[in-house]
Design a protein around this nucleic acid. Structure first.
Lengths: 262, 262
DNA sequence: GCAAAAGTGTTTTCAGTACACCCATGC
DNA sequence: GCATGGGTGTACTGAAAACACTTTTGC
């Protein structure tokens, strides 16, 4: 939606294309400068931030919808995307009137006020997806109703609309619990990475510290990563070696549910 | 729904009470005679079986809806119930015409045929829940449109409508992956149980065998169970001791994500 | 007495953990 | 030469795994 006309069409005719009562919200994680970050957007005329989201078209599958929405927001296709939970309990979701007022603040930009019969004014449950993306791969496309966007560190999330805070917390818990079953390192790091990078990533996600030597030993023992002959030149100190994932071993380890036991 | 009148009201006025496009399907597990079983129902005029399910009322939360539906089917309140996945990809779900024909076979009992505008004829995504219940606690209430119900062993599931087979498979995978994080043994066994019972339960769910001695050692070492002074008199052989869960330790172990490492 | 089911301990092995010093670089 | 960050090996410990014989009971 990149024009007044497109927004009006969405408001007035969206119910013909999309399923009402159901939306998708995406928690998009990336890792940059040793920090785990989430992509947030702020809609026109809102002080609180939101998760990027969208609706499911009547003629597309749920998975297609989630991938389409992500691609629209980040220009990345085929990214790592997992459904994790449906949110339908929050009082903010049951209160149709309150939600409508929030939306109307934004739609004021196109001089529209939703009436109580609008498909957008109905109680909506949201399916939470989380995505893992390369920080540098993302190109956030400006949308007409979005004033700004930002990457925020997970430990420093600003006030959010509706139950989006809860969705993020749940996504984080899921990320933690799936770190040994999903190729999380693979999707958040560049193709080549240093040991300190992946070490810090695991420490950040799991929120605890690991001994450098044991961490490397484990990774190598499981054959998850291969040490390369190159080093990365960063700053004034000894250059760290580069590593890459041994995708074959990595895949197998995840399938076996290999608990890395950190 | 226990009368023609109630069904007609549901078909004609359900859209005023329930959210369209969205249903809840329940995979209800119990454990009986050393077998993991699932509750299935067969609707009037259908040859294939179905999972018990229902819709979300406009004024109740998602969690309330799931609990209400389960209570309606099994007469159990406050049972162990967990949301695990939304199903919205199956071709059977996208094909509104095909789904309508299936439903109409059943609604023929009340001489109704859904037209394409009926709320029940719309594409529906389903939120999958799984429940763990005591086999003996369940009282299945006969519903007007349900011809019969049965407990089927998970390894021997008959042909099912729509994507219910996929839902069961996904529920089983979830059950396996959560066996160390959720009080699965606690909810599937009676208050007092024998070592062979819980041993067989874990073997059944995880689909592999465990050494009896190591299994018991682990359970006791973690303090999850307490051996009682009683024995259970079953059949012609040596009577096994009874055990009970040490709920306090059990709870703590699950919180810590104590991998039981079987 | 024998078949079927349940009870029980010891040894080995391997993976997790703890721990400290050296090397390279830029300023 | 010193501050910073990266690289690396060993010893200990504890939990998982492997393993077999005895007891009870009904027939």
């Amino acid at each position: 939606m990149d024009s007044t006309q497109a927004v009006l069409d969405f408001v007035n005719h969206g119910h013909e294309r999309y399923l009402p009562h159901l939306s998708i919200d995406c928690v998009i994680f990336s890792y940059h400068e040793q920090q785990l970050k989430i992509l947030l957007i702020r809609y026109y005329n809102q002080s609180k931030w939101s998760l990027p989201g969208g609706f499911i078209a009547k003629d597309e599958t749920l998975t297609q919808a989630a991938n389409r929405i992500l691609a629209e927001k980040t220009q990345i296709n085929n990214l790592f995307l997992r459904q994790f939970q449906v949110f339908g309990d929050s009082p903010a979701r049951l209160n149709e009137l309150g939600a409508r007022e929030v939306h109307n603040a934004t739609y004021a930009k196109v001089n529209v006020a939703l009436d109580e019969n609008s498909w957008l004014a109905k109680r909506t449950l949201s399916i939470g997806y989380y995505a893992l993306v390369g920080y540098l791969d993302v190109v956030v496309t400006p949308e007409y109703l979005v004033d700004e966007y930002c990457w925020r560190e997970v430990t420093n999330i600003p006030p959010l609309l509706f139950d989006h805070q809860e969705i993020i917390e749940s996504a984080l818990l899921t990320l933690r619990s799936q770190i040994y079953q999903q190729p999380i390192g693979y999707n958040l790091l560049l193709e080549k990475f240093t040991l300190p990078e992946i070490h810090a990533l695991y420490e950040t996600i799991l929120g605890k510290q690991f001994d450098r030597r044991n961490f490397r030993k484990k990774l190598l023992a499981l054959g998850l990563v291969r040490q390369l002959d190159e080093r990365r030149n960063i700053g004034p100190h000894r250059s760290p070696f580069l590593y890459e994932f041994d995708t074959e071993n990595y895949r197998r380890a995840l399938e076996e549910g290999a608990v890395l036991g950190f």
